[in-house]
Design a binder for these strands. Structure first.
Length: 896
DNA sequence: TCTAACACGC
DNA sequence: GACGTACGTGTTAGAA
């Protein structure tokens, strides 16, 4: 007959394990700013073992009040012991909630630790003939191992969780002692991780030997005089008290007055609706899936009538409905696999909630016919359009000669404004977050990589049933998001900056940036030649051929074969990054060659080959994607290719910019740059009179900083002092600490600290701001930019110094970087509108954080220059002037 | 298919 | 004295 199984979980141990990163991500926070990483890890670990063992009985033991309470009697010892971190304390009530919703019994007893409780209950269950599995993070529990009691201890190895399992046999096998004696071994050797002191100088081997010979510490000390090794004997005597104390600390109370009614621990169904609500609140989407909570009752309220349109008749019906309602929400199906294909496979449209139409363009109805029919709707600015990720659809329409007017809401952008820290903003996530609905995701249906399935290949009925729901979700999410934007005071940010920007970015993508392929090829040939030369030279100096691109192989050559000093190590071996190589530069001839090789190979692979592969064969241009929902600070990012990191600092790389040209001889490039926008924003936000004055006088700000910090008249600032001040300014703007600054300037950390302190002393309001913003961030849980963009900062509440410091730097930096991002976005919208209003041929083609590039018709260069300067400098009124420098040229190299 | 190491921009 | 350091993207090597 099978024995009944009881699983006892040591809540405190597992909680600690989960928190310190055994499972789950290190920093997990909900959009409300609540830390949930330990909660997540806890559930994950617990569930793993439940699945593995499938016990009929289960309970979790806690000693939540004070993890150290039994140690109070040992004053000196307790003083060293750290208490439970604040984040853990915050998470404990949440874990309790989860357990209650899972209907798993929690055991807590006044005056006893979790260890004691699980010890008692294990022995109790064993007497009743049950099999017991103890899940714990602590080897103390080994003293409980028995033929009917197994101990499982999760361990991390290379990021993966493995389990150590012990029972009577394995402990005999491994330690050749009785499980109960384990505690004596531990008491002797101590355990630094658990702050159990033991006897210094006694390791595992000695402790095991002693206990095998003497059985217990008590017996050992009765016979301590017979020990022949003098040093050992002395150590034992000196630390006798500590040894006994350690035994007491690690001992599990096996005879406590605690008789639990085991029947109460029988597993029952989860409280599914409650668990669902809880996981939704905590944003544990994968758990909702894992625990099969998808079909909760919320689902019922979501009913949509999805009609499939198969002919012109249906289209006309839908059109009428849209003209009547004057609004529509829609979701387009364009495969995200090849940016040049750009084919519409289907679209679902709704003019009023509850009703949606789905069109597939394979056989039913022709894509072209649909566009002809719908052109009038798309271009009608009186019909409000609600969609999700509209930018790509606008580009699609532009490519077919259709404009999208009446853009009234984009749910993806809205969700980003509410919380910019998320990784993705899919419809199904939004449905879950804002509506509590679980809707299948088309992204998942499509899969990734080799499993990718284009929309045309999917099951039609299924696709209809999924995509058909989306317009409804968009309608509903729009209302929720709008409400939230209102609460957060972000209506202006959304409607006046972000939403209009969608069209601007679409336009930039549509026009693209012309490249001169011949120029690229010519640079490519030069690079090839030099790379070849360097390769030969490097092989010669190394005395053998190897893959220079492999850091692993390079490390062996440099640090083993050539025996150069190791400066720095990485997780996996020797570090060979530029910083290390520069330090070794005069130690061996090979080093400068490698540095140069690295530089050239980067240019070749990323910028020559990389750019060549993304030139659109039809337009001969590069059409980068500009992403509006990626960065946490509000900046725009650029991908496929990234046009925001084209080289400029070194001449060799800068040449790449010669290949970026205007479309033809009728056009020129006009490039406008904000000068020191972040520092100006800083001056404005802090209201620092010194800095404001410097900008108002149009001083060289770095020289001015140098003059203040180093106490010399501004006309006596040397280039060296200026560059130091520049690095400090840079550090302030980017929120780096003394550590990074010391590296940048090649000085000690102390000196760097002194520079920063000196700076803050001279700019008193900056200092005040830096302090206040952190306090404010902590109080509200987020910081904001000048235009109300938010970033949540749960890190500020961390008790971990590093995480908290990180949060503090972000709190200081985000309002500055983010406000600068707001400003250039405002300028972009202004410029775009102005070009459109004046019906100019010129157009915006690129943004690089503080720089805008317009491809201007030769007849319009002057006008465009004025528009750029005016729009950018007057984008917003600050307490310091914004200054913009404009240059033009026939290629990007010339405009700098 | 994924991660680590590296390097480019603001 | 912690112990790792703004925001991004892309390429290559190498392990699973």
């Amino acid at each position: 007959m099978n024995k009944k199984k009881l699983m006892v979980i040591d809540g405190n141990s597992i909680l600690n394990r989960a928190f310190y990163g055994l499972q789950g991500p290190n920093l997990l926070a909900t959009s409300d700013g609540l830390y949930t990483n330990a909660v997540y890890g806890f559930i994950n670990i617990m569930n793993k073992y439940i699945e593995e063992e499938n016990p009929q009985y289960i309970c979790v033991a806690f000693d939540l009040k004070a993890p150290t309470f039994r140690h109070k009697q040992f004053d000196g010892y307790k003083a060293n012991r750290k208490g439970m971190p604040d984040e853990l304390r915050v998470q404990v009530p949440v874990i309790k909630e989860v357990l209650d919703a899972m209907r798993i019994k929690r055991l807590e007893m006044e005056g006893y630790e979790a260890d004691d409780i699980l010890g008692s209950i294990s022995l109790c269950a064993q007497q009743k003939g049950m099999e017991v599995i103890i899940i714990t993070g602590d080897r103390d529990a080994l003293q409980l191992a028995d033929k009917d009691i197994r101990i499982k201890i999760p361990k991390t190895k290379g990021g993966k969780t493995e389990t150590e399992e012990y029972n009577l046999e394995t402990i005999h096998g491994k330690y050749k002692i009785e499980p109960v004696q384990f505690i004596d071994v531990k008491a002797l050797m101590g355990d630094t991780s658990d702050n159990i002191p033991g006897v210094p100088g006694i390791g595992e081997k000695t402790a095991l030997d002693l206990i095998q010979n003497y059985g217990t510490i008590e017996n050992l000390y009765e016979n301590v005089d017979n020990i022949t090794k003098k040093a050992l004997k002395e150590k034992l005597i000196t630390y006798k008290e500590q040894a006994f104390m350690s035994k007491e600390l690690a001992r599990i109370e096996r005879n406590m007055p605690f008789l639990c009614n085991i029947d109460e621990l029988a597993r029952v169904e989860f409280d599914k609706p409650r668990l669902y609500e809880l996981f939704k609140r905590l944003e544990f989407k994968s758990f909702i899936e894992k625990f099969g909570l998808k079909d909760s009752q919320n689902q019922e309220s979501f009913k949509v009538n999805i009609k499939r349109i198969k002919d012109k008749q249906g289209i006309l019906e839908l059109k009428n409905e849209i003209f009547e309602e004057k609004e529509m929400s829609f979701y387009y199906l364009i495969d995200k696999v090849d940016k040049f294909t750009n084919k519409l496979s289907g679209i679902s449209i709704s003019a009023k909630e509850g009703n949606s139409y789905y069109l597939a363009f394979n056989e039913d109805y022709n894509e072209k016919e649909f566009l002809e029919e719908f052109k009038s709707i798309f271009e009608d600015s009186d019909i409000k359009k609600y969609g999700h990720d509209l930018k790509n659809f606008i580009v699609y329409l532009k490519n077919r000669g259709i404009e999208l007017n009446g853009i009234a809401f984009d749910t993806m952008i809205g969700a980003y404004i509410i919380n910019p820290s998320r990784d993705t903003y899919t419809i199904s996530e939004l449905a879950n977050d804002y509506l509590g609905l679980s809707v299948k995701s088309v992204e998942e249906m499509a899969g990734k990589g080799r499993n990718f399935m284009p929309f045309d290949a999917m099951d039609e009925e299924e696709l209809k049933n999924v995509a058909g729901l989306y317009p409804e979700v968009i309608f509903k999410c729009k209302n929720k998001i709008e409400e939230k934007l209102g609460e957060n005071d972000q209506i202006k940010l959304y409607y006046e900056i972000e939403l209009p920007l969608v069209e601007v970015l679409a336009d930039m993508e549509y026009y693209g940036f012309k490249v001169n392929v011949n120029e690229l090829m010519s640079i490519s040939r030069q690079l090839d030649e030099k790379i070849q030369e360097l390769t030969v030279k490097i092989y010669e100096l190394a005395g053998e051929e190897f893959n220079i691109n492999s850091t692993k192989q390079l490390g062996v050559i440099l640090f083993e074969k050539l025996e150069l000093p190791v400066i720095k190590k990485t997780k996996t071996g020797y570090s060979t990054d530029a910083e290390v190589l520069e330090e070794l530069a005069d130690k061996h001839e090979i080093i400068p060659k490698i540095l140069e090789y690295r530089q050239l190979i980067k240019l070749k692979s990323t910028y020559i080959d990389g750019l060549m592969s993304v030139i659109n064969p039809v337009t001969g241009k590069i059409h980068s994607s500009f992403n509006q929902t990626v960065t946490v600070t509000g900046r725009i990012s650029s991908t496929e290719p990234n046009l925001q990191n084209i080289p400029i600092k070194l001449e060799m790389g800068r040449n790449i910019r010669k290949a970026f040209v205007s479309s033809d001889e009728n056009y020129r490039l006009v490039d406008a740059d904000y000068s020191q926008i972040e520092l100006r924003v800083l001056a404005h936000i802090t209201g620092d009179v010194n800095m404001i004055e410097a900008f108002n006088k149009n001083e060289d700000i770095h020289a001015s900083t140098a003059s203040k910090v180093f106490g010399v008249p501004i006309n006596e600032v040397t280039p060296l002092l200026r560059s130091k001040a520049k690095a400090v300014n840079f550090g302030i703007v980017y929120g780096i600490g003394d550590f990074s600054l010391s590296k940048d300037l090649g000085i000690t950390r102390k000196e760097a600290r002194a520079y920063i302190d000196g700076y803050l002393e001279k700019y008193a309001n900056v200092k005040k701001y830096m302090h206040d913003i952190v306090v404010q961030g902590k109080e509200f849980g987020f910081v904001t930019t000048l235009f109300g963009r938010r970033r949540y900062l749960p890190e500020l509440k961390s008790s971990n110094f590093n995480i908290r410091s990180f949060g503090e730097r972000i709190a200081m930096n985000t309002p500055i970087q983010g406000s600068a991002a707001d400003i250039i976005k405002i300028a972009m919208v202004k410029v775009y509108k102005e070009l459109k209003a004046r019906k100019l041929k010129s157009r915006l083609i690129l943004q690089v954080h503080d720089e805008l590039i317009i491809e201007a018709h030769v007849s319009e260069v002057e006008e465009v220059t004025t528009i750029l300067k005016e729009s950018m400098e007057n984008a917003v009124k600050l307490s310091v002037p914004l200054s913009v420098e404009v240059k033009s040229g026939s290629n990007w190299y010339e405009t700098k």
